[in-house]
Amino acid sequence: MSAGVLFDAPGPKARRRNRIYAVAGTAAILALIAFVVLRLQGKGQFAGYMWDLFQYAGIQQRIEDGLVATLKAFALAAVGSLVLGALLAAGRLSDHRAVRWVATAVVEFFRALPLLILIFVLYASVFAPFWALVLGLTLYNGCVQAEVFRAGVNAVPRGQTEAAYALGMRKSQVMATVLIPQAVRSMLPTIISQLVVTLKDTSLGFIITYEELLYAGRLVASNTVTRGGYPYVPVVIVIGTVYIAMCLALSALAQWIERRGRRSRKGVVPVPAEADAVVAQAE
């Protein structure tokens, strides 16, 4: 914690000052939340008739279908990106220069492109929305996962490789039995963090009219007319909560694995997902 070195343990005067800041800060944050809630209430967004739509079986079904569609795209893209990532990482670590160059070119190209542009091109050229989304997510996240795998393999201490070769193992044996198990172990939190990114990015399907959760929500909201107008606010609140809950659950899994790995004394220590994923996740 950086706070520990930046300032002394507070004395009586500083404690009093901190207490004033705490009260002022809490008041400011509560005032902000109250402002948001009151404004929304003032516009009648919390009135019963705005939320009635969630009681209809048809609308519940639509949202459920959207959720299933999101999870389906995520599952396929997750598996696809892990497989592609493994292949590209193997390519980048290859001893043959040509293979290395091709893999590097592919990884750099797809990482430099905005994912939305890629998905839209796939959609506008040949693919159905579902496959455009899955393929785009697979290509982009596969390239990011390849970099994660590669970093993991490179982080295994050199002595491990040397010892394996000295025991007479072949190149593929060294990779499969010595390097990859340790690399996956140390990189698991980062790999899962990247899966959170994949899950978040399934929402881009909204833009190419793939009927995932956001799209279903928007359709429901724009097809329902209540006394207070279109119920966009209730729908965004419900759908947003579902999305954030899913992503938080997956992030929590990554953190749990990281903490669990740190407890053990043997082998390589998992790299905290925060360190490199901070940048990767923004993409």
């Binding site: 404004r39 929304l40 516009k43 967004q45 959170v196 978040k200 990015d201 399934t202 929402s203 881009l204 909204f206 833009i207 956001l214 928007r218 909201a221 966009y232 606010v233 965004v236 759908i239 947003g240 999305y243 954030i244 992503c247 938080l248 992030s251």
Partner: peptide, 17 residues
């Protein structure tokens, strides 16, 4: 943990309210 597209929807549909 929020998809950016969702954030855009919040900005477009909720913020003006």
């Amino acid at each position: 943990n929020t998809p950016l597209t969702l954030l855009f929807m919040i900005a477009v549909f909720v913020a003006p309210q």
